[in-house]
């Protein structure tokens, strides 16, 4: 009897802990977004974060985009050639990239590359008391450390997604046209006929914007909320990758259902 109540209490406590963590995360988000940035000091900070979050993720995005586009074209070709519709490879590559694969894969790679780095960096700042000392000097670390990183993630992910799509489609063309010999004109024409800028490209971008918010939010919060020890940082980094990947995949389903569900 006693163990039942004890277990119940334990369960209740862990639920309460989670709810409290969500509450803290919400507060961090609020303060990072609301924090009125001082344009003079915060612009260089933002540029620096754009560099470490965006520019440094570019190589992995370009390489993966290229290969995914090439694989899509190859797989699509082997199936479509049976029906004599291999010129639809372009359409297939473009639609699956623009609507689905580019936002999702970019967000997952971004969580692994930039998200984990953000968490580790902020966690390390916390462990080495940099956040505390900033507070003692009279600067709010949410404003100075968290806010620029959050905005940088938000800006970078859609850009990376576009690069991923473009490179992937180019890779698909490389395989489809140059290697498998699909007629280039029909490759592009099929693509242009079926891809709509607003319905497909912009919806993909909206997806990636949502993913950008989620992944960066999870990353900065896990860093900010980490236990200030080396063990705590490694746990927080793992959590960032796991939580943000799950959130991206779950949200992707919801967004897809909302955007393309009625087609």
């Amino acid at each position: 009897m006693q163990s039942v109540t004890a277990n119940l209490a334990l369960l209740g406590r862990s639920v309460l802990d989670r709810v409290a963590a969500i509450g803290r995360a919400g507060m961090v988000l609020m303060q990072a977004v609301i924090a009125r940035p001082d344009p003079l000091t915060s612009f260089p900070l933002l540029v620096r974060q754009l560099y470490s979050v965006g520019v440094l993720s570019m190589v992995i995005i370009i390489v993966s985009g290229l290969f995914i586009g090439m694989v899509l074209a190859l797989q699509g070709y082997t199936i479509l050639v049976d029906y004599g519709t291999e010129q639809a490879v372009g359409q297939m590559v473009a639609l699956s990239l623009v609507r689905e694969l580019a936002p999702v894969v970019t967000a997952l790679l971004f969580a692994g590359r930039a998200g984990s780095a953000l968490t580790a960096e902020i966690g390390l700042m916390k462990t080495t008391e940099q956040l505390s000392s900033m507070e003692m000097i009279g600067v709010d670390p949410l404003r100075r450390i968290i806010a620029p990183r959050f905005w940088a993630g938000l800006i970078c992910l859609p850009i990376l997604t576009m690069i991923f799509s473009a490179v992937g489609i180019w890779g698909g063309m490389l395989v489809g046209v140059d290697w498998l010999g699909i007629y280039e004109g029909s490759f592009w024409a099929n693509m242009q006929n079926s891809v709509d800028f607003f319905d497909d490209v912009l919806n993909g971008l909206i997806k990636s914007l949502v993913f950008g918010v989620v992944v960066t939010w999870v990353a900065v919060f896990q860093g900010y909320d980490s236990v200030p020890t080396s063990e705590g940082i490694s746990q927080a980094t793992t959590k960032t990758v796991v939580y943000s990947s799950l959130a991206v995949l779950g949200l992707d389903f919801i967004l897809t259902a909302l955007m393309f569900g009625d087609l």
Partner: peptide, 20 residues
């Protein structure tokens, strides 16, 4: 608090220099 902290300096255990 922000103004009062101007009157205080604190040396943290780990130094806490901003690494960037």
């Amino acid at each position: 608090l922000f103004n009062v902290r101007e009157k205080m300096g604190m040396l943290f255990q780990s130094g806490a220099l901003f690494t960037d």
